[in-house]
Simulated assay, not measured.
Amino acid sequence: MGALKILEVNYSLRIEDEDREAARRRHALSNRKFLESLERERVGAELAFIRQVVLQDPASAEIYKFLQLSKGGAEAAYGEIYDRLAVLCSEWSPDGQWVLLARVLHEFLTELPPAAKEDLLVIIQACMEASGRLDLVDKVRAVVDRVDS
């Protein structure tokens, strides 16, 4: 029996233009879906960060605003933000005046009967009105209405 010996092989592969275009579209769609997924994850992580860290106190919010401005190249606002941040950090630290006062008021209000709470709201609204802050009077009313409903 004789042996067959292959000395040379030539082949050619040709991809049809329609197939090449379909593969390109499929690859582009896959990339777009992947990038959209990454963007959703990034936005979700940023929102979680804002809820958990930034919105915890005014100083954290100012720091976040400062960082966002620094990304945009708003160097002119740095001095003003630094000053405001220093004030907020001292006011809203755990042993800051307003934090301690809020704790005391919270303790006082939890023990106050409902009728006395309503009287206190009337007094607070009168103080705000006397100081010309009608916008705050409206905000207090809105909070009370929301809680009552």
Rank of each mutant, 00 (worst) to 15 (best):
A59H: 07
V137K: 01
E107T: 12
I63Y: 06
A86V: 10
E18G: 12
G44E: 11
S60L: 09
S131F: 00
K71V: 08
R26K: 12
L47R: 11
S131W: 00
A115M: 03
A77I: 08
D145Q: 02
F49C: 08
R42K: 10
E80D: 10
K65C: 06
I63P: 00
E75I: 09
V144R: 15
I81V: 09
D17Y: 14
L120D: 01
S90A: 07
V104G: 04
S93W: 03
G96K: 00
E18V: 12
L55W: 08
D57C: 11
D95T: 09
I123Q: 10
R103Y: 05
S37W: 04
F34S: 06
D19S: 08
E75V: 13
G2P: 13
D19Y: 04
A86R: 06
F34L: 10
R25G: 05
V87L: 06
G44W: 02
W98H: 13
E39Y: 08
V104M: 12
E80L: 09
W98N: 12
H106N: 15
A22Y: 08
V122G: 07
E91F: 12
L88E: 11
E129A: 11
V9G: 00
E41Y: 03
Y64I: 13
P113G: 02
P58L: 01
N10H: 11
E62V: 15
Q125W: 02
L120M: 10
M1K: 05
A86Q: 04
L100P: 03
E36D: 12
L109V: 08
N31L: 12
P113K: 04
V9A: 04
W92E: 05
F49I: 01
L101C: 02
G44H: 04
D138W: 07
L47A: 10
W98I: 08
V99M: 09
A116I: 09
D95E: 11
L4Y: 15
G79I: 03
M1V: 06
R133M: 09
G73D: 05
D95H: 03
V43K: 15
G96H: 01
A115Y: 03
R42L: 14
V54Q: 02
L134S: 07
V54F: 07
D17I: 15
V87H: 06
V144H: 13
Y11Q: 09
R26H: 13
M128F: 11
P113E: 07
A45G: 14
R32D: 05
L47I: 10
E16S: 15
D145L: 02
V43M: 12
L100V: 14
L136N: 00
D17C: 08
K33D: 10
